[in-house]
């Protein structure tokens, strides 16, 4: 792996037409965002702020109405196949295939890439072990707990050793202890793999504990704050949380982010 490329989001806009009312909805309105290679970024925002639409555009499931997401000169939608094996997503629900065992779920992305079977086996078993699932390789999803299923989903993402890792509220539905544990594992593995990681979350604690950066989305994915967590002392985390909260509630950057490289339009 040559290493991940920088992600440059330029003038990204996504407009939907509602099927029932025929009204147009601006889900993302001219978003500009740069993410450095190997950076871990948490995106926070209220429900309906365009986080999930941004993710669909990142994955390449949707095409932008205007603007572009540029990753090393390629775009996820137009160059869909280029990103096969380079990008992996952990979703909110585990989204495991119920008819496949843990092992078969983990090796799915490698199968799609037509990786030789022995390599599939070796890499899948390696990641199942790393996530503590070596005794559950033949278990079907319905035989596993929610936390274990999410571990399988994480192993399925890491088995690709992707350049870009996306996590869409991947730990939000788990109990706090399991979520914290899995989040730590996820971050440690992401750093070990040298992947660029983007995590969507609605939990501020999670965002603060996760990221090198926290990006706060307002309505229509308007960039309200771009916080470099390292600039904040641990003792200030309480204040940081309050400031993010105030930003989200007011749909405008909080004054406490004045020293951050803040973007408002």
């Amino acid at each position: 792996m040559s290493g991940p490329a920088a992600i440059a989001v330029r003038g990204l806009r996504k407009v939907f037409r509602q099927a029932t009312t025929g009204q147009t909805v601006v889900a993302i309105d001219h978003l500009d965002l740069d993410i450095a290679p190997r950076e871990v970024v948490a995106i926070v925002g209220q429900t309906g702020c365009g986080k999930s639409t941004f993710f669909d555009l990142m994955i390449g499931l949707e095409h932008p109405s205007e603007g572009a997401i540029d990753i090393g000169g390629k775009t996820p939608y137009a160059d869909f196949d280029y990103f096969r094996g380079r990008m992996a997503t952990v979703f909110q629900q585990d989204r495991l295939l119920p008819w496949r065992s843990s092992y078969d779920n983990v090796r799915l992305p490698l199968e799609l890439m037509r990786v030789p079977e022995d390599v599939q086996r070796q890499r899948s078993m390696h990641w199942l072990k790393r996530l503590g699932l070596e005794n559950f390789t033949n278990a079907y999803p319905h035989e596993l707990s929610g936390g274990m299923r999410q571990r399988v989903a994480i192993a399925r993402a890491f088995v690709l050793q992707p350049e870009i890792l996306l996590a869409d509220e991947a730990f939000g539905h788990l109990d706090e202890v399991t979520a914290a544990e899995l989040r730590e594992t996820f971050l440690a593995l992401a750093r070990e793999c040298g992947s660029t990681a983007i995590l969507i979350t609605h939990q501020l604690e999670e965002a603060i504990s996760v990221g090198d950066r926290i990006v706060v989305f307002g309505k229509s994915a308007r960039l309200l704050a771009d916080i470099h967590v390292a600039k904040w002392d641990k003792s200030e985390y309480g204040m940081l949380r309050e400031a993010i909260q105030a930003t989200l509630q007011g749909n405008a950057p909080d004054v406490r982010f004045a020293h951050e490289r803040r973007i408002t339009r």
């Binding site: 994955i59 390449g60 499931l61 869909f80 196949d81 990103f83 096969r84 094996g85 990008m87 992996a88 997503t89 979703f91 629900q93 989204r95 295939l97 799915l108 992305p109 199968e111 799609l112």
Partner: peptide, 16 residues
């Protein structure tokens, strides 16, 4: 829809 989205995120060919 969730499973279809998951599958597409791994970029399968139409036959896959």
């Amino acid at each position: 829809k969730e499973l279809r989205g998951m599958m597409r995120s791994f970029r399968p060919t139409p036959s896959q």
